[in-house]
Design a protein around this nucleic acid. Structure first.
Lengths: 124, 124
DNA sequence: ACATCATATGCAAATATTATAATATTTTTA
DNA sequence: TAAAAATATTATAATATTTGCATATGATGT
């Protein structure tokens, strides 16, 4: 299982407009750097930097074909996340049942003990 | 549908260890700030900052219950992403069929035209 | 009204991310 | 082997994110 740190790392790597576009394209198939240049509208070195980042984090890899570097997806979670992001979610989650606001405190959880001293007031 | 910018924004907001923990906890139910203090091991102001950030981006909201702020999930994509991140993916994606490396150039896509001048050499 | 509890806010310092520009590397072809 | 094509690397400047700390706010009970 992915650790908390790995989850964060993965999301941070995906969370960039150029890199999302790269990943979306790679879901369609193998692409080389100059393919990305065609539609990405950022400089070639910048594209290489993003590709390098994705590769260092094990998200993509490449094979050489002549002088082309052919990049492809490696991490199977990527298509799933990209797909999720593309979905439409018309409804918000249902509000928690305990709403609406109460005056007396209908908070569903137990209250914590105060910091240093022993148990204070009442535990609701 | 979410724009590219919105996708990036969403991922960036989730991509933080404290915020992921917060969201994971909120998937179990309503929680107030001092609940988070118990297991998050960061300062209360810092927790409030993260909660504020999540709220500003429409990911969570709260209702008041006495002096407690009871936070809950709003954006329905959150549980899905959190669930994805928790999954196990034992296998990498299958390598593209066009591998292995060729000398002659078996690149599956069309090559692009060179920048300024008309069509160069051959289009493979 | 006052003290207290629960939480938020503002700001500066520390850190991280990103784009840009210049240059280097590698492979192929002539 | 030199030139060209395709891509990578590095340093740097600009910007964004995150944290810590002090303090502020608002609700509740007395």
């Amino acid at each position: 299982m992915r650790s908390l740190g790995q989850k964060v790392e993965l999301l941070r790597i995906i969370a960039h407009p150029v890199r999302i576009r790269i990943l979306e394209e790679l879901m369609k198939g193998v692409k080389c750097v100059s393919d990305f240049e065609e539609f990405l509208d950022v400089s070639q070195p910048n594209i290489s930097q993003h590709l390098g980042l994705l590769r260092n984090h094990g998200v993509i890899d490449y094979y050489m074909d002549g002088r082309l570097r052919c990049y492809y997806l490696v991490d199977p979670i990527i298509p799933e996340i990209i797909e999720l992001l593309g979905r439409d979610y018309p409804e918000a989650l249902p509000a928690p049942a305990c709403c609406p606001v109460t005056r007396r405190g209908k908070y569903p959880g137990k209250r914590r003990r105060r910091k240093g001293r022993g148990p204070s007031a009442r535990e609701i």
